[in-house]
């Protein structure tokens, strides 16, 4: 149910986007909506991050995954159990760049006393790494459309990405990894009853959305003869605030379908689970140093509570305490 609705939604959105190819619609789908989407995306992201950052962190609660820093002769594990800001940054870097916690699942195990095998869990890490890193590189590659002249680093990245030199135009490695990673993440969600049980429409929709964007992008590059000059003109126009109606009309329906899905993605991510990429930086169990006993953490909303003070305690038990030889304050 959740799967079908999500698939239908993405399909519908794509078709809606192809309307941009219709005469006169270029202005809406090629200019108005992209600006709107970027606005919602950036605004939404700021709002989302602020909605977290504005909430205080009352206690310092890192999850420690290695030896603490205590006695000087005991080797501590600063990247798994950071003791100061710098090592906490190191831990975050491992987490953000290499998904350290997901990688924890890769463990060699001895099965049935003899055989050494690896659990199947590393696949999640591999799939996630392939998808996320390719996505980043694909984003950077697209800068060649938005910028004129193209920065050298983008050109370099593009060349490196196409090093296999298969196909014409060259098929990028990241394109393949991106689609393969997505396909794995989707297949995994569909195949495992356990995951199907916990998955919501909000888990399938982004997967289909990314797939839609990826496939339409691949299509644009490799199957349809896209008018790349017009596309570049539209894109550069967007970044430079100068628009050319001829280029907008010539860009083609498929291009608008692709662009519209990107717009949807931009507008959707701050309000969905995709915002996890910003959330991970703020996670108190990961970004805090385990310096609890050496540096006092202050709770900004601390308030006095009702306690049972010592004198009340002694008042209740004074005679018994004296009888048992426990020293008391008041005789």
């Amino acid at each position: 149910m959740n799967v079908l609705i999500s698939l239908a939604a993405v399909g519908g959105l794509f078709l809606l986007g192809t309307l941009g190819g219709a005469p006169g619609m270029g202005w809406i789908f090629g200019v108005v909506l992209p600006y709107l989407a970027v606005g919602i995306g950036i605004g939404g992201l700021i709002w989302r991050v602020m909605s977290w950052a504005n909430v205080p962190v009352p206690f310092r609660i890192p999850t420690t995954c290695g030896q603490q820093k205590s006695l000087p002769w005991i080797k501590s594990n600063p990247l798994e159990n950071p003791h100061n800001g710098l090592t906490a940054v190191g831990r975050m870097a491992l987490e953000v760049l290499f998904f350290r916690s997901l990688l924890r699942n890769t463990k060699a195990e001895v099965i049935d006393q003899r055989r050494l095998v690896y659990t199947s869990a590393p696949w999640l890490w591999i799939g996630a790494m392939a998808f996320h890193w390719s996505f980043l590189i694909i984003l950077v590659r697209h800068l060649r459309l938005l910028a004129n002249p193209v920065p050298w680093c983008v050109t370099f990245l593009q060349r490196a990405d196409g090093f296999l030199e298969i196909g014409l135009p060259v098929i990028y490695v990241t394109t393949v990894l991106f689609l393969a990673g997505l396909a794995y993440l989707l297949a995994r969600r569909l195949a495992s009853p356990q995951l199907r049980y916990i998955s919501l429409a909000g888990d399938y929709f982004p997967l289909f959305l990314f797939l839609g964007i990826g496939i339409s992008g691949f299509w644009l590059r490799h199957w349809t003869k896209t008018d790349i000059v017009s596309v570049k003109q539209v894109a550069v126009g967007l970044s430079g605030f100068s628009f050319d109606s001829d280029a907008l009309a010539a860009a083609g329906s498929l291009f608008y379908g692709h662009l519209f899905l990107v717009c949807v993605l931009l507008a959707y991510f701050p309000f969905s689970k995709l915002s996890h990429f910003a959330g991970v930086f703020l996670s108190p169990t990961r970004n805090m140093a385990n310096s609890n006993r050496s540096v006092r953490h202050v709770n900004p909303w601390d308030y006095p509570v009702k306690v049972h003070p010592y004198d009340e305690y002694e008042d209740e038990f004074r005679e018994k305490m004296k009888g048992a030889g426990v020293p008391v304050e008041k005789e």
Binding site: I111, D112, V117, S192, P193, Y197
Partner: peptide
């Protein structure tokens, strides 16, 4: 169903 899938998949005795 969810549990039996998990019980079946992982071969690790621990």
């Amino acid at each position: 169903k969810d549990s039996s899938a998990a019980f079946k998949r992982r071969k690790d005795p621990f």
